[in-house]
Design a protein around this nucleic acid. Sequence first.
DNA 1: TTGCAAAATTTCAATGGGTGCAACAAATGG
DNA 2: CCATTTGTTGCACCCATTGAAATTTTGCAA
Lengths: 201, 201
Amino acid sequence: MVGLRERKKQRTRRALIEAALRLFDEKGFEETTLAEIAAAAEVSTRTFFSYFASKEDVLFFDGESRMAMATELISSRMPGEHLADLLLRLVRASMGWTSGDDGFSVEEVPLRMRLVMTVPSLQARALHLLFDSQLRLALALEDAFPDELDHVDAAAAVGALIGATKLAVISSINRGGSLEQAEEAAMRAAQLTLRGLSSIG
Amino acid sequence: MVGLRERKKQRTRRALIEAALRLFDEKGFEETTLAEIAAAAEVSTRTFFSYFASKEDVLFFDGESRMAMATELISSRMPGEHLADLLLRLVRASMGWTSGDDGFSVEEVPLRMRLVMTVPSLQARALHLLFDSQLRLALALEDAFPDELDHVDAAAAVGALIGATKLAVISSINRGGSLEQAEEAAMRAAQLTLRGLSSIG
DNA sequence: TTGCAAAATTTCAATGGGTGCAACAAATGG
DNA sequence: CCATTTGTTGCACCCATTGAAATTTTGCAA
């Protein structure tokens, strides 16, 4: 299963990610070409596309593992646990996740935030990925509350929670707030929303 | 103010929009090139970009006028009107807006929905535009409730409301629901969220 | 170890969106 | 009618992305 082939692929993937993040940091996203990233990772430009579907995607390399952690947490619902409590657990836990098994650490979080806030195509991609995650989380919620939630409830709960926290965070940062203030705003928005959600589950 | 120059520009803009929508409908978005759109509108390809910043943007030509209607509605808050009531008015009204002064009618709504649901780059662009609108709506809300809402409240309210309805609509459509069922889901999600929001304003 | 099939990489050419620029045409205002 | 402003065009160019064919690397079995 974990033969040489697989290990080599992981090494290449890692090299691409590291090269890309470094170059994005040094020269900016739009100023970095795929050719440069590929060269820095010592592969051909074409090979980049067998690892990532687009230039944007390399920045969100840990999306899948974060998603896996989230769905796992949801499916770990304690018997009888209330919707709002489970979601609060989810919000708290996910703020601590920097990255999963991908082996990258918390250091690239500010870089990613900066890039997503300033580069339109990255913002669009981030929103798109987040939206996709929400649909999947809603499905997971439905599974976790088979008798209590229908799909509109589940969608409304996930959409409201993530919608509120996301807008609060960005709105806070747009006003020049620090990452700490943004985190603070996120928790407050989440709690406001969860209070409303307590009428559902 | 409305000289020949201005009228001519509006005619060109309209021609571009009509040509683009027709071609997107006939051949699909990705299969339509900018050269074809420009040719159908009888301008040069280069000119397309003095009207729209990207191929995606032409599909959302009425975004600004819809936004204007929304902010106007918010600023028309009756004295003492409660947050949830104002937002309910907003949701109801906006479902009726097909397009504003742009002079296009309800006919392109299904086309747009179909394209946004199936073309990734359009979905990303739509989410990006919607997100931007949310930030502006949150600001408008803050202005409308100067004493009752701080910016986290406002962001949470807008984010939760739009997040919930959006996810409910798409989730409903993803299950094969009709546009009517989606609208139904939207209203239900909005009401669930507004109930929670009644604790804020 | 050798040889072969599968998988990964490279090379190459082409498409198409998007931009900067300089020439050109048309409208406006006097 | 002239001068200025504004919009249009053609052109050269950059770069992301894709397809296909050629080539290399790896896994595995004889």
